[in-house]
């Protein structure tokens, strides 16, 4: 039981996020109206995705240093979960954009950057499929994983800030938290980030275990 407290915490936080996020009071803002509640789901999904990608890269580095295939298996599952979270982030963002900016996919640098980073990680999966030898696949894809994260950072943090963007916190817009969120909302927003990250780690852990069992079954 001692080892599983964080899973209970994830369930608890996410239940709280869903209920209090949908029912709790929010400030009345023009245009945003009730859609401001999406900040509890859309933004934490991105934060969790970035954390998962970072973890995936750390395990890629650990694989390169140690040569243990176990690290590689963890690295690829973190990347998989990050892709799922990225797609969910895109979906929640598209719904939000549809009602506040008028179209589901406006031509915005941040959206396009995210689409490109999805391409990066999908290319990573295709690259893994191209090798039969396990050690070789692990080594080459770990190198590409590190390269992908290094490209992802300027894509998502530098380029959107240099041009006009619809997103808050970019292109001279004030960050979201500055004017639009009140303390009531922060009480939900910050736990939601932790909750979604824990959920991502949990999914990854299950997938890693499943993969290990499959490998044992194959042998």
């Amino acid at each position: 039981m001692k080892k599983h407290w964080w899973k209970a915490l994830a369930v608890l936080i996410l239940t709280y996020t869903v209920f209090w996020g949908l029912l709790g009071p929010t400030p009345r803002q023009p245009i945003l109206n009730e859609s401001i509640r999406n900040v509890y789901f859309h933004v934490p999904l991105w934060f969790a995705m970035i954390t998962l990608m970072l973890t995936s890269m750390i395990f890629a580095i650990r694989y390169l240093r140690s040569g243990k295939l176990a690290h590689d298996a963890v690295s690829v599952q973190f990347a998989n979960t990050a892709i799922v979270f990225g797609l969910l982030g895109c979906a929640t963002g598209a719904v939000w954009a549809n009602y506040t900016w008028g179209e589901p996919w406006p031509n915005d640098p941040k959206l396009n950057s995210v689409a490109v980073s999805m391409l990066l990680y999908l290319a990573y999966l295709v690259l893994r499929g191209a090798f039969d030898d396990e050690q070789r696949r692990a080594r080459i894809s770990a190198v590409y994983n590190i390269l992908a994260f290094a490209v992802f950072i300027p894509l998502i943090f530098i380029i959107p800030r240099m041009t006009d963007s619809l997103h808050p916190g970019n292109g001279g817009n004030p960050a979201f938290g500055k004017y639009d969120m009140d303390n009531q909302m922060r009480m939900v927003f910050y736990p939601a980030i932790i909750g979604f990250t824990l959920l991502g780690v949990w999914i990854t852990q299950l997938r890693v275990r499943l993969r290990r069992l499959q490998m044992v079954m194959e042998e």
Binding site: S117, L119, L120, A123, V126, L127, A130, F131, Y144, V151
Partner: peptide, 20 residues
């Protein structure tokens, strides 16, 4: 170059890397 089907792989690996 380490993979067999390297022409396609070269294109899909390099497009996103070169984009920024």
């Amino acid at each position: 170059a380490k993979a067999e089907n390297s022409a396609t792989l070269m294109a899909i690996l390099s497009f996103p890397v070169i984009l920024p």
